[in-house]
Design a protein around this nucleic acid. Structure first.
Lengths: 189, 189
DNA sequence: TTCGCACCATCCGTTTCAGACGGTCTAGGA
DNA sequence: TCCTAGACCGTCTGAAACGGATGGTGCGAA
């Protein structure tokens, strides 16, 4: 049993299996897509390597079934769920991190043309609106089941952040439109 | 001249040098610390390797001065500033990404105790408040110079996101405190 | 003058990453 | 029945990111 360090991604894998019950890597891949993946994404290849590592450490248990495709079902061991609970209980030290190329480009925008910034801002409004719609659909679909489910609650934080971004870009579009040409041909879109 | 792909980090380096004028890697390191680093962090070692790559591609120009320490000053070439402007003009495809372990732990919180969640929520309120104060200080310090500087504007987005997060965690603390009433901490859900 | 420490630059082993690749199954048309 | 297209599933690889170790340099204090 190795003494390797567990990364945040390890706990995501562990946690997902704990929530869903016994799962294959592919199950996880699909689950990630429309849930935790929205706020902690990583390459799907990791969903194959990580469970292996975790089972070597004794945190997961492997069941191999041969339905033609060699596929393995993982489930959490006692040791695994202990490790998970320990992680959940320990304080969070890393601050929230945002990575957004649009924000970056805005930061550097004095090097580009005002027109580009306006175009980008409008596009950002569109993209954030879309994302908000996705979140709200999800909230509606799963909210019927249990409106206080923690998974929904954390989704609500994502929604807040998206709204904040949307507001920001919307206002920026307004300011830029006013400032740039109070008389110039306006963009009809 | 290599045909390597430029990553977002490459453009951060390019952009920083374009904004600041000729800079050494260490200059960049310090500049990153209290500006763009807040929303696009990367290891400092990259600030030494990346400029080298960029100059091999002809996007940066190197001047070596021997003040004892072998230290190199980089400045942007015409080709470099063209590449930068091209990047700034092209549409943003990657969505905004948030990475927040607190949000993750909340997602998995049905596996932990309600008490842990409340503790974490309170701690999050503290952390986001602190971060907001840092941002506001910065806004004040640099805002005197030019309150419309794009670098400040993009900082304002960061501020909005922090406020959204702060509101979320604050409300959650309220809800959890009510829910558990005056009794013992219990499982939420 | 020497020491000690902050400053500066680079190197290195590991982990993460994106996505290409290759094998496996299923449906449905001939 | 056979064939094939295309979805499904798992693995591999080369590059980038990571972060800590290492080592050299200059400056102020003793």
């Amino acid at each position: 049993m190795s003494t390797e360090r567990l990364t945040t991604t390890s706990y995501v894998v562990l946690g997902l299996i704990a929530l869903r019950g016994p799962s294959t890597s592919y199950d996880l891949k699909r689950a990630v897509g429309h849930s935790v993946g929205y706020f902690w994404s990583f390459p799907h290849a990791q969903l194959y390597s990580e469970p292996r590592r975790l089972s070597e450490m004794g945190l997961l248990e492997v069941a191999t079934e041969l339905d033609g495709r060699r596929r393995q079902t993982f489930s959490v061991t006692d040791q695994g769920s202990q490790a998970l609970r320990r992680w959940l209980a320990e304080p969070v030290t890393e601050p929230m991190q945002v990575r957004d190329v649009a924000e970056l480009k805005l930061f550097f925008s004095e090097l580009s043309s005002g027109k580009d910034v306006l175009t980008m801002a409008k596009e950002q409004v569109r993209q954030h609106s879309d994302r908000i719609r996705v979140y709200e659909d999800m909230e509606e679909r799963y909210g019927a089941v249990d409106r206080l489910a923690p998974r929904l609650v954390s989704l609500r934080l994502g929604l807040r952040l998206e709204h904040a971004a949307l507001d920001f870009w919307t206002e920026l579009v307004g300011e830029l439109s006013n400032a740039s040409g109070s008389g110039q041909a306006r963009d009809a879109s």
